[in-house]
């Protein structure tokens, strides 16, 4: 089938970008979306043109490396699916697709469809962990976790850190990402001692990174490839209010 692509081309962070049109006359319906881009790139190289830079690694929907906007939807039209797991059979002959990088002040474009998501790492570094040094753990079964909590914690922990939530959010907020980490750790007994400090630290860091904030719109939830629910944001809000007014989660210097 024939697919027309309009792709954001930007040589580097400082350069100005623009949409460029490419036509692919022979796209096999069994191809994955990224395989289609591979073909395009082989073509471009053949013609001596700079191939389109895009991030990817596992191509199994788990590493969180891939992703771009396809016709204004993060990871494309199929819900619960990363770009690498999206197959061309979900498109029609003659479709025109607009590919753009994630856009947010906190995610500057590096080149073409590649963006810098290191802000997510800094959010985790600020508090998205349980402080346990290697070797100091008790037996695994010494800590009992009700199955329902373990399951809900796992639901939140499934986040792959791809950034689609930020990309799709009209406010470019990282709330779903943060909420997922806070829920993952906050639903487990191991995560309780640092619960107050974690939310305060991550919240403060998100502001330093210039992410927007949540206004309960829900576009993040709609495009999350791992189906993380908006409830995690409510949990984060609750944790924040608790930590702020009741908890002892004061951060020095904040």
């Amino acid at each position: 089938m024939r697919i027309v692509l309009h792709i954001w081309r930007q040589a580097n962070a400082a350069a100005a970008g623009r949409m460029v049109r490419y036509e692919l006359p022979n796209v096999n319906t069994h191809m994955s979306f990224l395989e289609m881009l591979d073909i395009l790139n082989e073509d471009l190289i053949g013609r001596g043109e700079d191939p389109v830079a895009f991030d990817h690694d596992c191509r199994e929907g788990i590493c969180g490396m891939c992703g771009c906007m396809v016709n204004g939807v993060a990871h494309g039209p199929l819900p619960g699916t990363t770009l690498c797991q999206l197959h061309m059979r979900h498109f029609k002959d003659g479709d025109e697709l607009y590919l753009e990088p994630w856009r947010a002040r906190a995610f500057p474009v590096v080149k073409d469809l590649v963006v810098d998501r290191s802000a997510f790492d800094r959010l985790i570094a600020a508090g998205g962990f349980i402080s346990v040094a290697t070797g100091s753990a008790p037996d695994g079964n010494a800590i009992l976790v009700p199955k329902e909590n373990a399951d809900r914690s796992m639901d939140a922990a499934a986040c792959i850190g791809c950034g689609a939530c930020v990309a799709m959010c009209p406010n470019a907020s990282a709330s779903l990402f943060m909420g997922a980490k806070l829920a993952h750790l906050g639903l487990l007994p191991q995560g309780q001692p640092e619960r107050d400090r974690r939310v305060m630290a991550m919240e403060a860091q998100a502001n330093r990174e210039l992410f927007g904030s949540c206004t309960n719109i829900g576009e993040c939830e709609a495009v999350c490839p791992k189906d993380i629910k908006l409830e995690v944001i409510a949990r984060m809000n609750r944790d924040f209010l608790h930590a702020n007014w009741i908890g002892r989660g004061g951060l020095k210097g904040d």
Binding site: F129, V132, A137, P138, G140, K147, D151, M154, H184, L185
Partner: peptide, 16 residues
């Protein structure tokens, strides 16, 4: 043990 302490959400039985 180490991973449980870090908060890895391993599958649990109903007993916890």
């Amino acid at each position: 043990d180490q991973c449980v302490a870090q908060g890895v959400p391993f599958a649990r039985e109903y007993s916890g």
